[in-house]
Nucleic acid binder design. Structure first.
Lengths: 123, 123
DNA sequence: CCCTATGTTCAACGTTTATTGAACTATTGA
DNA sequence: TCAATAGTTCAATAAACGTTGAACATAGGG
């Protein structure tokens, strides 16, 4: 198990890859939930997304999100804590992430985004 | 040849499909060039994109762009004139199209977007 | 009326993608 | 030390995707 997963530098983040990454419903849901966590400046770990797909399938989507530069993974013991690369994304593509997240929020029921049901944390 | 291609209604436009459509470099270039034409409120026809790919490949991408609700095709004689569905997209996903187009403009060289070279019109 | 220009449709192809379960690695706590 | 927990990696599969060329449809100009 590699200790610290590879992430692209800010300048290596490419628009088509980001859009492709966001176009998958499961990955969009992950990004959406991470965006909700931003507001309380906390992180989520893999297990918090178990409502979206199976473990190995989630690992696949996490890798995609990491490789395209959308999120950052921090290894802490047996957990992986994740957060959006907000600053890098806003610098490279101003307004894009917010537009996507707000659009997703508008269609939350259609996209089956119910973060408040899945994300239970705080204990 | 069907007289008027099918387009989704405004409400049928889905975020993941739009993002997926925009994630292909050729389609992103098409959308980018259509956005440039918006500013002089004119349309482009298929032949104007011949620098991007072969005819049948372009037809494939045009169909995708139409089916996901990104653009509108108007049949006029032997030509097809196309334009962005700006109003519908802004209504469904506020700020998204502009964010994508501005981000693409920032990376114009990396994405090989050179509309002023390809799009020669006005005669 | 034919010929040309414009664009679509179709079949074929190789590639990439998402999803699954099983095997694996690493860390923590008893 | 042993077992449980958290997550990754791998191989296999089926579906979707992008690209190509050939055939086709349609409209307009000589």
């Amino acid at each position: 198990m590699s200790r610290t997963p590879l992430h692209p530098t800010r300048e290596q983040i490419e628009l088509p890859m980001v859009l492709d990454c966001l176009s998958d419903p499961i990955r969009l849901a992950i990004v959406y939930q991470l965006a909700q966590q931003e507001r309380v400046s906390s992180e989520l770990c893999c297990g918090d997304f178990s409502g979206l797909a199976g473990k190995s399938n989630l690992a696949y989507h996490f890798a995609k999100l990491r490789e395209c530069g959308l999120m950052l993974t921090r290894v802490a013991g047996t957990n992986r804590f994740m957060r959006l690369r907000r600053e890098d994304l806003d610098a490279r593509f101003p307004g894009l992430l917010d537009a996507v997240i707000n659009s997703a929020a508008k269609d939350a029921d259609r996209l089956q985004l119910w973060p408040e049901c899945e994300v239970v944390q705080g204990e």
